[in-house]
């Protein structure tokens, strides 16, 4: 009896395995690639604890030195500077990256002409699709103190030329402004979609109750997009250490390291230019761990407060 049950069970398992086999096979290529190109580098983070000699190979017989790489990089003046710059730049980018798209979406939502609305959308989404290489090139030209369009305008209005990308007083502001410029249109999409989802009867009811447009915006539109605003705010938490490598790398220069050097550019120079693999990996590990904490917390909060599920 028991034997028979076992046989039935094993037959069942076999059938099940046979049915699931194609699913496993479909996963396999992607799984292998992710293991090699995502998980092996994670294992490679052990370099942070070694006196790494490249010729011995990534997982070669390296000398372990404990936390020496960490104490070394944390004592470098460039590190704390980069950390502070990163948080500062990221904070303002997050703040304006949330506010500007909401205001823009509200303004766009008030438009009556559909064609005009569509045209504005088409234009403001465009910069999002350009890379920072292209935009960096464009801004280098436009913001140049000698002959750039912006400085021509400033001098024409009677001001003095400003070296936006080479002056520590202006560099961070320029980074924040150009980042908001690139992303605000695209960032507004989620809010516009949420506004379209608001029941028009609510507006009609408000109008009957004598609410003017301003009151309708305040009491109908804003509560209607409240959830998505909360969600975007919470999710943006994960970016506290992302000041935007692509942008900074393509716009900064030696003269603005003081205010413009961020963790990612610091790691790049330390690791790939100075070939100090151990210390650079230590900084990278520090950033990865802190970022992971923030991203996890942000997903958890999003799940808790907005019932957000990724999969």
């Amino acid at each position: 009896m028991a034997k028979q049950a076992k046989r039935v069970k094993s037959k069942y398992t076999k059938a099940r395995f046979k049915r699931e086999l194609p699913l496993h096979l479909m996963i396999l290529p992607g799984l292998i690639l992710v293991l090699i190109f995502s998980y092996v580098p994670m294992g490679g983070l052990i370099i942070a604890f070694q006196k790494f000699i490249p010729s011995k190979g990534m997982f070669g017989d390296q000398k372990w030195i404990g936390l020496k790489n960490f104490s070394y990089v944390f004592s470098l003046p460039g590190f704390s500077r980069a950390l502070i710059n990163t948080i500062e730049i990221a904070f303002w980018k997050i703040l304006f990256g949330l506010l500007v798209p909401i205001v823009f979406a509200l303004l766009l939502n008030e438009l009556r002409g559909r064609k005009f609305k569509k045209a504005v959308q088409t234009i403001v989404y465009l910069p999002y699709f350009m890379s920072w290489v292209v935009l960096g090139g464009i801004f280098h030209d436009m913001l140049s103190p000698s002959g750039g369009v912006i400085n021509q305008l400033i001098t024409a209005l009677g001001g003095k030329p400003v070296f936006f990308l080479g002056d520590n007083r202006y560099f961070q502001g320029t980074m924040i402004a150009t980042d908001v410029w690139k992303n605000f249109g695209y960032g507004a999409i989620v809010y516009l979609a949420a506004m379209l989802g608001i029941d028009t009867q609510l507006y009609e009811a408000a109008e009957i109750d004598g609410a003017n447009r301003w009151q309708q915006t305040w009491h109908v539109t804003l509560p209607g997009i409240k959830m998505i605003v909360v969600l975007m705010t919470v999710l943006s938490l994960g970016n506290v250490l992302n000041a935007g490598f692509d942008q900074i790398f393509n716009m900064y220069s030696t003269s603005v390291y003081e205010t413009g050097d961020i963790i990612d550019t610091f790691v790049y120079r330390l690791g790939l230019l100075d070939a100090q693999y151990g210390p650079a990996t230590a900084v990278g590990l520090f950033k990865s761990v802190v970022s992971t904490l923030f991203i996890s917390v942000s997903y958890f909060l999003a799940y808790k407060f907005a019932d957000y599920r990724i999969f």
Binding site: I36, F37, S38, V40, P41, M42, G43, G44, L45, I47, P54, M58, D264, V267, Y268, G271, L272, Y277, A280, T281, G284, L285, K287, S288, T292
Partner: peptide, 11 residues
């Protein structure tokens, strides 16, 4: 989570 720049480069 990711290994970051240096391990990715060395790989």
């Amino acid at each position: 989570f990711s290994g970051g720049l240096i391990p990715g480069y060395l790989l």
